[in-house]
């Protein structure tokens, strides 16, 4: 049975890049644990010889030809961006390069 700790919730929130308040964390912990313990219903199913099913249909080899299509123009590409200089998307300084 799962024991979802507050630390687990914090770790997952950080992986998912979600800033949560202390209250949120406590609430989420409870609700997530509810769902997780329900989901453990699956433990009773024997799946030892079962292939996982990632797609709802079993198609393979779906390809496109290597033929160019029109791109968007620069203004369209940037139109929905929160911050640009007209040419680039802008983001706060990325610090992890020396």
């Amino acid at each position: 049975m799962s024991e979802l700790t507050v630390d687990d919730v914090k770790k997952v929130a950080s992986l998912a890049r979600l800033k949560l308040s202390g209250d949120d964390i406590a609430r989420y912990q409870k609700k997530l644990e509810n769902v997780l313990s329900y989901v453990h219903l699956l433990d009773e199913v024997d799946t030892s010889d079962v292939e996982p099913m990632a797609h709802a249909i079993e198609a393979v080899n779906v390809f496109r030809q290597d033929e160019p299509r029109d791109s968007l123009d620069q203004a369209q590409a940037l139109a929905n961006a929160p911050q640009t200089d007209g040419k680039y998307f802008l983001v706060p300084a990325i610090l992890d390069e020396a």
Partner: peptide
Amino acid sequence: AYYLKALKVRRLIR
């Protein structure tokens, strides 16, 4: 334990 298990049971459902 979670994702892969779910995909397997998904096949059984199908």
